[in-house]
């Protein structure tokens, strides 16, 4: 199997997973597809080396994370939620909102700073250790710990705020 066949076989298998990771990192499906394509293109260039070293998936994850970071920097991207979306989230009829709820979780994760979001996705979606996360993000382990702590605190606060808002609206309606 030549380089192209081998790479295309890998990319066909991996692209859906990379788009999912990209979606969690960016919160935008179309951007996730673009970033995945660029990630795979860079992998094509480095393919013989990363294949021989047996670190294809780690390389993909690292390249994807850095691509998202570069994209944010170049396009000065923010990830703020539109107000309408936040309102929609807060006016849920169900008071038992928790972080396992997809919409609530998406809104909560999107409310994080980019690096906080990245650390949460790498630690809890990709199941990376603190050391692996630090290597992927090119930062120290203590920075990973700090970002994780900040992000989890914000997520918890976001959840409590959501519940408070729902409870207040519920009282106002009675």
């Amino acid at each position: 199997m030549d380089r192209d066949e081998e790479f295309v076989a890998f990319a066909s298998r991996a692209s859906a997973g990379l788009v999912r990771l990209g979606y969690l990192l960016t919160g935008d499906y179309d951007l996730a597809k673009d970033v995945t394509q660029e990630t795979l293109a860079r992998m094509y260039v480095a393919w013989p080396k990363i294949r021989d070293q047996g670190r294809v998936h780690a390389y993909a994850r690292t390249t994807m994370t850095r691509q998202v970071h570069d994209w944010r920097r170049r396009h000065r991207m923010g990830f703020e939620l539109p107000t309408a979306e936040l309102d929609n989230h807060n006016s849920s009829a169900d008071p038992a909102i928790d972080l396992a709820n997809s919409m609530a979780l998406l809104a909560a994760v999107r409310s994080l700073e980019p690096r906080e979001r990245t650390v949460i996705v790498l630690r809890y979606y990709e199941d990376l250790s603190e050391i692996q996360t630090a290597e992927t993000m090119r930062c120290s382990v203590s920075a990973v710990k700090s970002l994780t702590h900040r992000a989890m605190t914000k997520l918890r606060r976001y959840q409590l705020d959501s519940e408070d808002t729902v409870a207040t609206k519920g009282k106002g309606q009675s």
Partner: peptide, 12 residues
């Protein structure tokens, strides 16, 4: 996402 592999290989 459909087939991204072909386009990615071309870009690569």
């Amino acid at each position: 996402p459909g087939n991204l592999a072909g386009k990615a290989a071309e870009l690569g």
